[in-house]
Amino acid sequence: MATEVITTRRRRYLLDNERVLGSVLMTPAVIYIVALVGFPFVLAIIYALSDVTTGSRGFNFVGFDNFVRILDDPVFLRSLRNTFVFAAISNILVVVLAKALAMILVADFKGKWVIRFFVLLPWTTPISLATIMWLWTLDSLFSPIDWVLRWLGLIESNSYFLGKPGLAMASVIIVHTWRIVPLAAVIMMAGLAAIPHEINDAAQVDGAGFWRKLFEITIPLMAPIIAVAVLFGVILTITDMSVVWVLTRGGPTNSTQVLATWSFLKGIEGGALSQGAAIALFLLPVLVGLTVVILRLARRVEVF
């Protein structure tokens, strides 16, 4: 009996002790991150500094040779440029569209919840599935967009969205934007909801119009939250390979090749695992730097 009481007390103590309980609850997340993010990340660094191939048994340290080699590769340089272009244009579009969408969705109107549901759908759909839908929509022969444009008399032959370099780049950017806008809109809705009504009311009393309120009140107050949305957008764009892989596999003529797809082609399909790892890690310092800068900026704006 006495032992039972002690055991119960000990259990209660453990469950009520925040340090113990906190550690216990955090453990699964830590294991998850170490196993699925930390370990592959360290492995990628090791691979990038070696001469390992998909079939090799040995491991030779080659320093930064792989990084030097990939810089001589014109396709890598093109992929690097494309990655920046996609990330920059996609995220400018994401910020503008998500901001507009957030402002619409915080307003009161009938059927708001249904609209919110549909707006969020692109984000909740698995990316590969959603991209296959776009692949069919942009098909060279059977695109419904072409069909409508032809029916309206705006075009005579098909557009070949994925067959012309310029249109293929635009297609990839649009699909990225379509995918990320809902997430960014939800983040910005939270920011909008956090702006005190009194500030807008006071500005209105002072005679401020929509644009003045937007640029002098809403956007400055939302800057930290916009920064977070941009951070998510940039990282999701730069690290994603699904959209490009499903839509174009980097074509035509590598015009939509990005670092993620080129890394996969080189490392897995081509067998040069170490070079693939080097390509995948190439932007890591940039991404880390970008993350630090954006988070610091966000914090500084928040403090002001």
């Binding site: 060279s140 022969l141 059977f142 070949y160 994925l162 067959g163 012309k164 074509g251 003529t253």
Partner: peptide, 19 residues
């Protein structure tokens, strides 16, 4: 030919012939 040949995946020419 048309620009579609630059956008193909492994199934595209099958689909085109079948259609």
């Amino acid at each position: 030919m048309t620009p579609e040949v630059f956008a193909w995946n492994a199934a595209s020419n099958n689909q085109g012939l079948i259609a």
